[in-house]
Amino acid sequence: MKLRALAHSRTGDKGDTSNISLIAYDMADYAHLEAHVTPERVSEHFRGIVTGAVTRYALPKIGALNFVLTGALGGVTRSLALDAHGKGLSSALLDLEIPDRP
């Protein structure tokens, strides 16, 4: 299944670092997200777009994960990219394929 079925997401930017939140619609799905949306999966998904490290922070009380991606934006204020802020990265993350819920 696509991540989009279980979670929503928003991208923010600071300098050349992007953060992408991933929030379960239903708190009951949080554990499934935590198990399958690892920093390694996210890093692999964004290969070619993100040059640096992917760090994951867990916020179980709101059913959310926060991914911090360095080297994601080519420097917002000088970037040649059409979407210099990386606003669209959250939508790209939700296209990730994960196993169905048990």
């Binding site: 600071k14 929030i23 922070y57 916020l59 709101i62 059913g63 959310a64 926060n66």
Partner: peptide
């Protein structure tokens, strides 16, 4: 959903939201 998205907007480590007056800790919100 709108409030959770905004809480994490432009936040890196939710336990260390660096501001001039305080380091905010949102990790147990």
């Amino acid at each position: 959903a709108t409030c959770k998205e905004q809480m994490l907007y432009e936040v890196h480590d939710p336990a260390r939201y660096l501001q001039p007056d305080v380091i905010g800790d949102f990790s147990d919100v």
